[in-house]
Simulated scan of single mutants.
Amino acid sequence: MGGRGTRSIAVSITGISVAMAVLAGCGPLPEVDGDLAGKGGGTSSGAKDDSGTERGVNPLDNPDGTGPGLKAITSDKDRAKARDLIDKVATKGRGAKTGYDRDKFGYAWADSVDDVPWGRNGCDTRNDLLKRDGRGVKYRDGSNCVIVSMTLYDPYTGKTIDWTKSKAAEVQIDHVMPLSYDWQMGASRWSESKRKQIANDPLNLIPVDGSTNGSKGDSGPATWLPPSRDIRCSYVVRFAQVALKYELPVTSADKAAMLEQCK
């Protein structure tokens, strides 16, 4: 989930709801079926935008997160690889949330982070991620960092979003493995520098529809999954990749849910 810069009010089709980018949310969104592609819903492939253009990278082929988005894992061979990867993740009970604060993971989208891709490159993390996943990216005059408009394919919903900075909250950056979850599973004992790494590591970050991101809160895969069913195996693979890189366990229920998505 995002930090200070994404704490904003999101407007939903049913009314106005406050969608804090850190710990907003009230449970999973309804599932989205493939026949809603092109109507602001899901996509049957989990990897094409509304124009039919292929988008995203299979997470099994993108272990550092520098490739754009997420592509659906569809082959039996890759789904078996996904289960093998998830099997390596350790489990334990979720710890207390006592002492958690977003600021414990550093200032939101700080560039001053070592040992992660694009750290200290002169651009903040949010703009790095928008550049990675956006198409038709346009920058503020005189800047090669601050993005003011783009088109984004959101793998979680299958939507193609025409985004402008004036409506910044329409796109939020999801921490696939939420920071509060990290805290409860062991990050509370980490150094500040390591917490800054997981908060700004592109492996753990995906730009998505803002209201969908708001629904997630700090849920694990047992209680929240992307609305588009086709992308769920890819999502839990990314969750596992982050857990393994940072040697964090997940709950037994979350691991069972992760394996279930890649059958």
Rank of each mutant, 00 (worst) to 15 (best):
A82P: 06
K88V: 01
T98Q: 05
T98R: 05
S51V: 01
G95R: 02
A96W: 03
G38D: 14
L60H: 02
A82C: 07
K48G: 07
G56Q: 13
S45K: 12
K39R: 15
T74C: 07
R83Y: 03
D64V: 12
G52F: 09
R94V: 11
G46Y: 05
R79G: 03
D61L: 14
N58T: 12
E31W: 09
D35V: 11
G65D: 03
D87K: 09
D50A: 08
N58M: 06
I86N: 02
I86T: 05
R83C: 03
R94I: 06
G99R: 05
G38T: 10
G34W: 04
G65H: 01
D50M: 06
A96I: 02
V89R: 00
K48N: 12
L70N: 05
A47V: 02
G52M: 10
T43Y: 10
K77Q: 15
D61E: 15
K88D: 08
L85P: 12
I73G: 02
T53F: 07
S51T: 11
R102M: 01
A37K: 15
I73H: 07
V57H: 01
A82F: 04
D35C: 10
I86M: 00
K97F: 02
A47H: 11
S75A: 03
A47M: 07
S51I: 00
G67S: 07
R79A: 03
N58Q: 10
G56M: 10
V32N: 15
D35F: 12
E31P: 13
T53D: 12
A80R: 12
K48W: 06
D64K: 11
G67W: 08
G46T: 06
K77H: 15
I86H: 00
D101H: 08
T66P: 02
S75V: 09
G41K: 05
